[in-house]
Design a protein around this nucleic acid. Structure first.
Length: 115
DNA sequence: AATGTGACGGAAC
DNA sequence: CGTTCCGCCACAT
């Protein structure tokens, strides 16, 4: 399982698409679930690529934050869209740009059995 | 070919 | 969870 495989991005999108409303996950958790433990940065790269190109159906890219809950990708959304969407889902913030991972962390490794 | 750059994460302090 | 440092790896230059 290498992060440079042709469908790595698509596999990332597939996981992100399953993050429930009101929940968030982080880059490392997705990479780990995909069997590429060192590919956290590549997950971010994949999401960046998603925002640039167009996918068949929309995915909740705003529900992916870093391990501490910081909205590190907010700059890639229009204005304050990332924060607004999360607050719209009643997600609790413990700081201006940091969500409460204790309350909202969704681990694909645990929540997703097979696929 | 070589070097710099991140939507990252973990360890050490 | 501050700062700093380091391993990581696809990409841009």
């Amino acid at each position: 399982m290498n992060p440079n495989s042709a469908d790595f991005y698509n596999r990332v999108y597939k996981v992100v698409a399953q993050i429930p409303e009101g929940k968030v996950t982080n880059y490392g958790a997705i990479a780990k679930y995909l069997g590429v433990e060192s590919g956290a940065r590549m997950v971010g790269y994949a999401l960046n690529n998603y925002l640039s190109g167009k996918l068949e159906f929309p995915i909740p890219a705003h529900r992916v934050v870093n391990r501490l809950g910081y909205l590190t990708g907010r700059a890639y959304f229009d204005g304050d869209t990332m924060r607004e969407r999360l607050q719209q889902e009643k997600i609790v913030f413990i700081d201006e740009y940091q969500v409460d991972m204790k309350l909202h962390f969704w681990d694909p490794q645990v929540e997703l059995s097979e696929s």
